[in-house]
Structure formats: C-alpha cells, structure tokens
Amino acid sequence: MKTIKIVQTASQLPQKIVTNDDLAEIMDTSDEWIHSRTGISERHIAVSETTASLAGDVLKKILAQSGVAADQIGFVIVASMSPDQMAPSMAAEAIVAAGLTNAFALDVNVACSGFVYALTLADGLINTLDADYGVVIGSETLSKLIDWQDRSTAVLFGDGAGGVLIKAVDGPKRLLAADLKTFADQADALTAGHLWSSEVWHQPKHESRYFHMDGHAVYSFATRQVAASIKRALDKIPNDLADVDYFLLHQANQRIIDKAADLLQQPAERFLSNVSHYGNTSAASIPILLDEMVRSAVIQPGQLLVLSGFGAGLSVGSIVYKY
C-alpha cells in the first residue's frame, strides 16, 4: 500500500494587485473598514490571466522545479469553483499547456474546501491507478463572479493558483486522517455562478451569477464546523491538537482563523495566514499558503500539519498530514 508524499509546491498570482484604497475609489468603503472586518489589505485580480492559465503555470513550475518529467505524471486534479468554461476542464487545459502526455485530467468543485477534497481523492488514486506521480492544484479567478458594487462580497475575494506534486512512496502513511462533510441543507447561505435554463421552453428564474452570501450564517458555520472537523480528523489517529505544528486553514477571513484558534484553545501563531495579501482565493488559498510557507522554510519535513477548508456547499474538510 502506497502513501502520498508532497515533493514540490508552487503557486502563481495574477500581476495586478488591487488594494483596499483602490476599492475605496469605486465603492463606499475604506481600508480601515475592510481590514478591521476581514484582515485583508490587498488582493491579486486577473486581467489577462484565466483559471486555466494560472493552473497551467503552476503545473509548469512544478515540473521545472522538481525535475520530474512530464510523462511521469499520472493525473492532474484541479479544484475550482470559477472555471473558464464548463468544458473542456481546467485540468485538461493545464496538461496541454504543460505538455503532459500520459496524465488524465479531472476537475472538482467543492468551492473553498476543494483543495482538501482533491488531495484526499489523490491519496486514493495513487493506489487505484498505480501511478508514480500526481498533481493537485487549486485555481480560481473569482473576480469574474464579483459584483464590484457590492462591498459585502467584493472586498473579500482574490484570484490565484497553487498546487502540489505528490509522489507514491512506501512506508508509513503521510496523509494520516481526513474528515469531509457537506451540509447541503445550508447551501443557500453562499452561492455563485448560476447558469440559466433555456428560455425557449420556459421562463426561468434569473438568479444572479454573482456571489450571494449570508455573512452571519457563513461565519457561524465556519467558526463552529472548522474546529469540529479538525477534532474529528484527529480523533481517528493517536495524535492530538498539541502535536500539530501548524494549522493551514482556508484563508477566508482573519477573524474566522482567529476564532478557530480560540475554539481549539491553541496558540494563534500556529495558525498560518497570508489573507492580508491575497484575500479569499477559495480552493487556491491553502496551496498558495502552503507554497509560501515551504519556500520561506517555516514548514519543514517531519512537521505535523492540519489543512482545513470550508465554504460553499456548505462544506468542510480537514486532513492531517505528516510533511
């Protein structure tokens, strides 16, 4: 039985940076109002970049930095809630851009929980397919789903992509435990990207394609369910909260991250954060954070990590991983 080992990380951000002061020029808001409520100071916004191009750039970086040949990659999974089109998949476009010839491509959409779900899926695929390598990417251009006049949502989101190269290895498990759960009865609390039915056969109800969020409901869900999910994952293994070196939570809002630390009664400094510079990048937020922390040597081999995503669905997912 093989286990997955993360052997390379990478990320790609759009060139354009939009600060809170920039947003204040187009809507009724201010840097103080945004930062005090979210912890966000700036975000990257795609102009020429697309979800597929960002994913492709991450994949190319992973190959270049790892030295693994393109034909050694067995599969590529892209987690995204903001694809450029319904078909072909973002993963299919990424493998073409990177010149992969043997990999199969798959997209998953679990919104902000997507990377955690996709990495859990990859752990199973490594053994099912007898693959040597796989790539898991979170890629988003959420800016195309934003109503730039709605300050309750427009200030929150950003664009970007991050990913990991995983290798099938023998030995003790590295993905030690996972907890995935969907609360579909609460799905209306956070929606985006509605596709209209054909008007030829009936008159559809035209829902907005833009983000719609019940902020209070989502905050309440996230603060309660993230802590609960992490505890459920750790309950499956001998380790406990005190053994975790770092928690990498979906970067939705600094208040949510701080509240999770408080509920788990763990030191805030063990909850890594870069939300100030990138905002909420949905499925891309955890792999972007992971890459940043690996490159800065904050995360080291042998450390015990908890990755936890939460968001639309409503969904939550946590994994415990021995880095």
Rank of each mutant, 00 (worst) to 15 (best):
D179I: 01
A46Q: 01
Q265T: 13
A227L: 12
T141G: 03
A178E: 09
A64D: 12
K322W: 08
S152I: 05
G99A: 10
I17H: 02
R151W: 11
R295G: 11
I62Q: 02
K181N: 15
G163N: 07
T38F: 04
F271A: 07
T51K: 00
A192R: 08
D179G: 00
A168T: 09
F310R: 00
F115L: 06
A131R: 02
I95W: 01
E292Y: 07
L125W: 08
V7W: 02
S276F: 03
V316L: 10
I4E: 01
V78Q: 04
K231Q: 15
R174K: 15
L289E: 07
D57E: 15
A283M: 13
G158F: 04
Q186D: 12
K322A: 15
G158Y: 05
I62W: 05
D262F: 12
I4W: 02
F310Y: 14
I17A: 05
Q186W: 07
D107S: 04
V316Q: 09
A227G: 10
I17M: 10
S208G: 12
L180C: 09
A24S: 15
E25Q: 15
G193P: 11
K322T: 05
G279F: 00
I146Q: 01
L23P: 00
A103G: 06
A189H: 15
K205L: 15
A284T: 11
Q300V: 13
L142G: 00
S273F: 02
F183K: 04
Q266D: 03
L248G: 06
S276Y: 00
T223F: 03
H206Q: 14
E93N: 10
V58N: 09
K5I: 01
T141I: 07
L106C: 14
L145W: 05
L304V: 07
V275P: 00
D214T: 13
I95G: 01
I299H: 02
A154Q: 04
A64V: 10
L241R: 05
D28M: 07
A94D: 03
